[in-house]
Amino acid sequence: MDADARAALDLLLTERDITRLVHEYCHGIDKRDEARFLAVWSEDAVWQVGADTVFRGQEGILAAAQQQWDTFRQMHHWSANLVLSVDPGEDRATGESDVDITVEMGDGSWVRGGGAYRDTYVREHGRWAIGRRESVGHFHLYGESADIR
């Protein structure tokens, strides 16, 4: 395999691995799977969920997720429109995706919202991870209860 083919293959595998991170984040947070959720984050990751709300490191990020799990009866995240910027041969990439979120509050009411994730990904110990995730452009729609048939 020549150098151009190797570079193209590395780029495709990188994009596949990072895309999977974006989806694993949703599965981990929604299914309350600590191991799955933590596996997407780098060791010193930063999760900025609001202008003044930032969680640092895997312990801080897990504590924030556990607080959400205690607050919401259920959560559903859907990420779409992922656009990646990868510099071939680098251990860093960036991406942006849109997110749609639906949560059931403790009183049974529902909140639907969305926004975007702006991410920085890092390759550490041979695997890709989210190094920084910033949530931006939030909106929320509040409802009473849902009867979906």
Rank of each mutant, 00 (worst) to 15 (best):
A64R: 06
G126T: 10
R132P: 02
G89M: 04
V99I: 15
R133N: 04
T14V: 03
I130E: 12
Y117D: 08
H23T: 15
T71L: 05
L21V: 12
Q66Y: 01
A146Q: 14
L9H: 03
S109M: 05
V49F: 07
G60P: 01
Q74L: 15
L12F: 07
S109W: 05
G114L: 11
Q74K: 10
K31Q: 15
D52P: 03
R132D: 10
A51G: 09
S42F: 08
G108T: 01
V86N: 03
E34F: 05
R127D: 12
A5T: 07
L13E: 12
A64Q: 13
I29K: 06
R112V: 11
R133W: 06
E43I: 08
R112T: 15
I61A: 04
A39D: 13
D70P: 00
G115L: 03
D30Q: 02
V136S: 09
R73D: 06
S42K: 04
I130H: 05
D30K: 00
G106T: 02
D30G: 08
H76D: 05
D33S: 04
Q58H: 03
D91E: 09
F55P: 00
A3Y: 04
G113N: 06
E59F: 06
R36K: 12
G57Y: 09
Q58N: 02
A7G: 00
I61S: 01
K31R: 15
G126L: 10
Y121S: 00
D44H: 15
Y25H: 14
V86T: 12
K31E: 15
E104F: 02
D87T: 14
T94D: 13
W110K: 02
A51E: 14
L13V: 02
D33A: 11
V99H: 00
D91F: 01
G50K: 02
A51I: 13
V22M: 10
I61H: 09
H27Y: 12
D33H: 06
R132N: 07
S145G: 14
T71G: 00
R56P: 02
L38R: 02
A39N: 12
D107Y: 08
I101D: 03
E96I: 10
W47T: 07
R20K: 00
E124M: 02
D100W: 13
D4M: 13
R16D: 15
D91K: 04
L141C: 03
H27E: 13
G115C: 05
E15W: 02
